[in-house]
């Protein structure tokens, strides 16, 4: 019976959206000047910051250096005040480690690391406010930050969380919907080729919706900061 609460008879969700409607996305690139690339994204009430350092010389253990491509190093962490109940440790718990690994695998597939042998690229994502879809918002923020750093990528990486209620797919879940019973799936996708395994057609359309929004953000940013060159 949880399905009835999440999706009303007229087809409206808890926050008034339709089943396949995405939350409002606002984003900004180049938020921090000291990092090589940075981005801030708001998807509904979930806010995330991503920062990219690199490519640079491998710090710490030289043994991690790969001779033919770059090492990608990710860290996912949440601000202690990001969740409704205060989180004791920002990172270091199992969930953060799992998310960091997920991010690393996602970006290793998209970033053209073979152009940067023996270097390291650091991607750090911080969730400032958590209202569902943490992984997806992180991936979207990290994509914008990597583009801002000028690191070559095959394509955007867009992510979205999708859930199912009574055979109706709901796109872009918020916190209440994630916990309200029913399954959810987070999907990261390279929109143009449709690469990275997809299980549902609806997840793909939701992700393509996200990719359109991110594309707009990057093009607007490009227009704003194009250098005035004299020829």
């Amino acid at each position: 019976m949880a399905g009835l609460e999440l999706l009303s008879d007229q087809g409206y969700r808890l926050d008034g959206r339709k089943a396949t409607e995405l939350r409002k996305v606002q984003a900004r690139m180049g938020v921090f000047s000291q990092a090589d690339g940075s981005a801030y994204i708001e998807q509904g009430n979930t806010k995330a910051l991503a920062v990219v350092y690199g490519p640079h010389e491998v710090r710490g253990s030289r043994s991690r250096t790969l001779h033919d491509r770059a090492v990608i190093n990710c860290q996912y962490s949440m601000a202690t005040f990001s969740t409704a109940e205060r989180k004791r440790r920002p990172h270091g718990d199992r969930k953060s480690a799992e998310m960091s690994l997920h991010l690393k695998q996602t970006f290793e597939a998209a970033v053209m690391t073979q152009l940067y042998p023996r270097s390291q690229i650091d991607i750090y994502v911080k969730i400032l406010q958590s209202d569902g879809g943490n992984y997806s918002v992180c991936v979207n923020a990290a994509t914008l930050a990597v583009i801002d750093a000028g690191i070559p990528m095959r394509d955007y990486v867009c992510a979205c969380t999708v859930g199912f209620v009574d055979e109706t797919p709901l796109a872009d879940l918020c916190y209440a919907e994630e916990g309200g019973g029913g399954s959810s799936l987070a999907l990261a996708l390279l929109p143009r080729g449709g690469q990275i395994a997809l299980l549902q057609m609806d997840a793909m359309t939701a992700c393509k919706g996200v990719s359109k929004v991110l594309d707009e953000v990057v093009r607007q940013h490009l227009q704003d900061v194009s250098v005035l060159t004299r020829e």
Partner: peptide, 16 residues
């Protein structure tokens, strides 16, 4: 009080 020196500030702050 809790101060979190996040890795966003510098890669030296990664992990612990």
């Amino acid at each position: 009080f809790f101060v979190d020196c996040s890795a966003n500030a510098t890669p030296e702050f990664e992990g612990r």
